[in-house]
Amino acid sequence: MALTSVEREPGQFRNASPGLQLILLCIVSIALMALDHRNEYLTGVRKSLSVLLYPVEFLVSAPFDLSRALSESIATRDALQAENRRLQDEALMRSASLQRMAALEAENARLRALLDSTAKVGEQMLIAEIVSVDMNPFRNMIVINRGGKDGVFVGQPVIDADGIVGQITRDRHYTSEVMLVTDVDHAVPVEIARNRLRTIGVGTGELDRLSLPFLPGNADVREGDLLVTSGLGGKFPPGYPVATVKNIRGTTGQPFLEIDAAPAAALNRMREVLLIKPEGNAGMADSDDDMPPAEPEQP
């Protein structure tokens, strides 16, 4: 049906009848969705459009970044001194535990050499800040200020000071999208640190809850158990804390327990995250960064 009140210039497509335009644009958007659903055909398009939209995100997050910077710069001398003291204490504690860590690492490498298995090498980290923009409110995703230009790649594990945060799902060149471990589409292979019982931690969509749906009724799991990555999926390096078991419910007649776990990472309070750079792990990345060679094993 033509629009009577709208004057048209002949020969221009944008003045074609709205019904035709609608059908055409619907077909285009459905085709786009079908292509995008496969997740690889449109990465280039998406990336270039994201780069174009980067100024919008920057402008939106600028006031929040500025207010944070201001509140930091006008902090009182006392507060700064207190924080400094606290941080120094913390650094002392950490370096004390690192001393033992170095010895243990060496011992671990020696034992692994005896067993003739490959030694786990330390990872390099890249610090990223969270961009103050909201993504889809129904997904647990965040944007960080590192992208393809910093060597970030899809599938890269993201952690914070306390544990696994998630993984990179899309690289936007200047920024990238991180899917949190609690997203409904996310699952992470974990093991219970106490007895190395392996299972899978599935996201629930709530920032403070992971679910462990695949443990049978007689599994040895207790409240307060720490879940660490098992490294089985090949995405996450083994040994990083993921969550703490919070709540175990067993229903008679049901083969599996319903277990809730609280994520170890401060998913709704963090400002900075760390990206783990795999060090020459085959099949993890094809980054052409010149990584330093792994340290030679102790004789």
Binding site: S29, M135, N136
Partner: peptide, 13 residues
């Protein structure tokens, strides 16, 4: 769609 990280074309439709 780009800003939300959703399927490209979803909001467009």
């Amino acid at each position: 769609d780009i800003l939300h990280g959703q399927l490209l074309g979803q909001n467009a439709l």
